[in-house]
Nucleic acid binder design. Structure first.
Length: 425
DNA sequence: TCTGGGGTCCTAGGACCC
DNA sequence: TCTGGGGTCCTAGGACCC
């Protein structure tokens, strides 16, 4: 049996743990740069405010005190997520994080009834230990577990835990009540095409002929339909594989055409990317740098250049990656545009543990590689213990345009000593 | 004035091989 | 009336996920 544990309105819930005054009121968490709403409390959803609503459209309501908007605090959410993960590991050794707020937990060797009991314990214990409310969906396949979780969220009588055995009347009832676009793997486009063919519910998708789905749509949709029928088609181990590419990008706080701004931003993103690369122990063979102007400003000239530059040899070393990113940036940059966003992607990743450096070419000699590796390890360990960005290559100027706007940032209560919650009596 | 930041997989089509 | 019949690799673009 597979369980899917999903935090309810996760970002909002993280904020509420440390600020109880946010309970029961409409709260939204904003994207980076305080751009648009990416997480909503139940009360905010009830006001009819859609996901992705730009923050500036809500200013009046914020001023009147009708709702509260917070900047996103990923350091806090990431730490709360790992706490939830630790609680789940008390129930099973086989837990696979799927996203910051969702985890698959594999419960092998239990009867169906026992699984339901475990689900209820998970529901209660995560709430008690971390303060985060979660829903639990249980089923024989990943796709059904997602659907069970969805049912647990929308249908109060499940009380946060829903088990779909796969072939009973209860499963059938839930599938018949679920619109097809709520199925994992069916987005807006597919839902439109399916509706045109008369398939509107999860149940109708499940009952469709697999070969026809394969022919008219794709192998992915055929697998989804099989999973809804209780036949596992997704690889259990696929969720904790190392990334095949690593992207780091940000919007600028304000649009800028200045070389110094884009150059600093790209240097920053290249370093952050290299850090992620080392965290999963991969080597990159190429770097892609891109710049975007502001698409929403139709009155300004637009440009979305990207340039790929090969690294001299597969590496995870920051200086090499920074230098190559800068080389690519010099090709991409044109001074006459006002850029809104810059990013760095690390491509063609290989596993560092199994990679054999070519005998010919330009890799550094053994002594130099060892020094490089020690330098990077030291850098990472300092940044890990003292916080991101404690030491870095290159200084950021004051007044730079690229740092983010985040006007409503909460404290990093659980990861920074100087931001601990204070209690007074 | 102001609209996020990551990822994955699949398919079609072209280039190229024998 | 009637194009050969396989392959592989790469890329772009679309669709999906959170």
């Amino acid at each position: 049996m597979i369980g899917l544990v999903d935090g309810n309105n996760f970002y909002v819930s993280c904020e509420r743990v440390f600020k109880p005054s946010l309970q029961g009121v409409p709260v939204g968490v904003l994207s980076n740069n305080d751009g648009c709403v990416i997480a909503r409390s139940q009360e905010l959803k009830a006001l009819g405010i859609a996901m992705g609503t730009p923050a500036f459209k809500l200013e009046a309501q914020v001023r009147r005190g009708e709702l509260f908007l917070l900047s996103s605090n990923y350091e806090l959410y990431g730490d709360m997520s790992s706490r939830v993960l630790e609680v789940l590991q008390e129930f099973s050794p086989d837990v696979a994080p799927y996203s910051i707020d969702e985890m698959f937990i594999h419960l092998d060797g239990h009867q169906t009834n026992e699984c339901l009991e475990i689900g209820r314990s998970i529901h209660a214990r995560v709430r008690r230990y971390t303060g985060i409310p979660v829903c639990v969906g249980l089923a024989p396949t990943h796709t059904l577990a997602k659907l069970a979780n969805h049912a647990a969220k929308v249908d109060r009588h499940h009380r946060g835990v829903c088990l779909l055995a796969g072939d009973d009347a209860a499963t059938r009832g839930v599938l018949q009540r679920t619109p097809v676009n709520a199925v994992w793997g069916v987005g807006r486009r597919l839902a439109e095409r399916l509706a045109a063919g008369g398939i509107k519910t999860a149940w109708e998708l499940r009952c469709s002929d697999i070969k026809t789905l394969r022919r008219r749509f794709s192998v992915t949709l055929a697998r989804t339909a099989m999973e809804l029928g209780g036949t596992p088609c997704l690889d259990m181990n696929a969720f904790d594989q190392p990334r095949q590419r690593i992207m780091t990008s940000r919007s600028f706080g304000r649009a800028t055409g200045a070389w110094a701004d884009v150059q600093e931003a790209v240097r920053h993103h290249a370093q952050r990317g290299a850090e992620k690369l080392r965290a999963q122990n991969s080597l990159a063979r190429a770097v892609l740098v891109f710049l975007n102007t502001n698409r929403h400003r139709r009155d300004l000239p637009q440009s979305f250049p990207h340039v790929v530059a090969e690294l001299p040899y597969p590496t995870q070393e920051s200086r090499q990656i920074i230098a190559t990113a800068q080389r690519a940036l010099r090709q991409a940059y044109r001074p006459r545009y006002r850029y809104m966003k810059a990013g760095v992607m690390l491509l063609d990743l290989v596993d560092a543990a199994n990679y054999q450096m070519p005998l010919l070419g330009t890799p550094p000699d053994a002594a130099e590689s060892t020094r490089n590796r020690q330098l990077m390890e030291t850098l990472d360990s300092i940044n890990r213990t003292m916080g991101h960005g404690t030491i870095a290559f290159g200084l950021a100027r004051r007044q730079a345009a690229w740092p983010l706007r985040c006007g409503h940032l909460s404290r990093r209560y659980t990861t920074r000593w100087n931001e601990l919650l204070e209690v007074s009596t």
